[in-house]
Design a protein around this nucleic acid. Sequence first.
DNA 1: GGGCCCGCAGAAAGCGATCTCGGAAACTGT
DNA 2: ACAGTTTCCGAGATCGCTTTCTGCGGGCCC
Lengths: 334, 334
Amino acid sequence: MTDTAKPRIEEVARVAGVSKSTVSRVINGEQYVSARARNAVHEAIAQLGYSPNQAARSLAGNRANAIALVVSEQGSRVLSDPFFASVLRGVHAELTGRRIQLLLMMSQPADNIDLVAYLSGGHVDGALLVSLHGADPLVAMLTGIRLPVVACGRPLGGSVPFVDADNFNGGLEAGRHLVSLGRRRVATIAGPRDMAVGMDRLSGWRRAMSEARLADDLVQEADFTPESGARAMASLLEREPELDAVFVAADIMALGALQVLHARGLRVPSDVAIVGFDDSVLASTATPPLTTVRQDVEQLGRTMTWRLLAELAGEPDLPPSLLLPTSLVHRASA
Amino acid sequence: MTDTAKPRIEEVARVAGVSKSTVSRVINGEQYVSARARNAVHEAIAQLGYSPNQAARSLAGNRANAIALVVSEQGSRVLSDPFFASVLRGVHAELTGRRIQLLLMMSQPADNIDLVAYLSGGHVDGALLVSLHGADPLVAMLTGIRLPVVACGRPLGGSVPFVDADNFNGGLEAGRHLVSLGRRRVATIAGPRDMAVGMDRLSGWRRAMSEARLADDLVQEADFTPESGARAMASLLEREPELDAVFVAADIMALGALQVLHARGLRVPSDVAIVGFDDSVLASTATPPLTTVRQDVEQLGRTMTWRLLAELAGEPDLPPSLLLPTSLVHRASA
DNA sequence: GGGCCCGCAGAAAGCGATCTCGGAAACTGT
DNA sequence: ACAGTTTCCGAGATCGCTTTCTGCGGGCCC
């Protein structure tokens, strides 16, 4: 009954009684095709169950119809992060409907050269950069080959278009909230110095402290793991046993901090109030549930993708970078 | 200095002083190429920074050089799961080095037909199926188009090759451990009835109970979310306030269960011992840290990929399915 | 009514690889 | 020395599309 071989454009053309060119025009939604022809083609496509061969399209059309999601993973930690999962979901959401494939690529610093060679090989039309650290040489290499690129989060080095949450404002709100609770000895567990996320949230917190004329010296750096969060908390407590609030720049680090506080018999929030960042699933399941700065990570993924596709489509006057709003989610921990 | 246009195979051939055919042979590692020619080609490639055009390769070679990772996502919950992230990492690890791309595809039941059309369109050489529920129609549709496929976890319906953790054994070990602790009223929060993971772990637990001649009636189903875990725990406590142990079929559900226990003033492990499953990051950061059944999820991803590639390579006598070992990780909760 | 523009459609030339053929060396064995 | 292999190499067709480029009607203007 059904043909075993998958139909080609030629076949569709024959069935529709038009030429290959016309079928191609219909598929690509070009103008100058009569309604009659268009319908005939659509019917033929449906009848044959035709689906165009991507490889041929890319080859002939001189574009890949694919974008890469480049995960710059130091220690491959990134992927375990729910953050990444949400970005991915957003990216995918924005991509559905358009015939664009998502290629997943991970870069170890070691094979950056291979990566760049591949990306410059015309295999993808653009790239989304996730989890850049410091002045990642990748950024420079990529801008060098003039491949359209959008970064997830403000990169510290280079100047690529990026989309990010309004981290400064998030830190500011977190700090203000803790202050409004009457806390006077407020600490922060910041992100690593080599990532803008960390620095921006820290700046926001600092601003809040200075607004309230409080000291902003209780800063401890950590690296977005629960363990580092625990260590940072311990060291803060050592420096200032009397601290009564902490802004932790990521929920996942807040978990570690919580453990340490529990272990020392300090109660949250009565002894120490905690505000996290991300509003990940971790925040709502923690004990106690974390008050945290919500960022819409899925929206972040969507916006990045939108920005990249817009650039690919040649839209003029695109903003180089975009900041997404954050908001404080009130739960039990502060 | 450097040529702006990216070099083609023709260019490489010219520089190396051989024909396109020979360059192609070298690139694809075929035999019957002299060492002299091989070296010349390699040098030319390095000198020109040549990277073959995937689209052209796929078109001419009649294979896609790509595999799809199909995430069957009801409510897109899957992606947030660290489990998925680890699988992904494993898949990617196995893929590096070979020139094979990973396409990420998500399927809503609604557009299964589109998905299948795409997959059968020769755009990918095979597919990895993640997070199948019950007798997902996707499986049948996919086997129908004879696309090589490997599932992540035993699918309930259909009969596709799959790789899975030894869930039965994991449940068994968990149950035995609780029994060995002297617990006599052991409950379980199982996975959903329509997923083999859940059922297999449950069977293992049942086996352990019967070995110890204990009742196996305290079973409550949940759906791999913290909230459902909490609800299940609450309902178990209602049915049997005296229960002294719970095997929770996923760490993420165990978090919910823990919250409920905390809320009721029950202490873990003294009042109620808990064993989770997965050994995800959640397990070690929970309060108290969870004793859990470890499965090497990354290895799972690698094994799936290996199995799929082996099939694509036409290797004979491949085992239809593979079970990966599990082991109990002792922490504070049991 | 002749020239033009406009809307539409088909023929054919690529896109950049792979792969089939057939031929030419280089080795065999006798 | 000669036929028969085995190893190596190149010419050219081919993959399934997109994209010019050209052509053809028909309405409009003058």
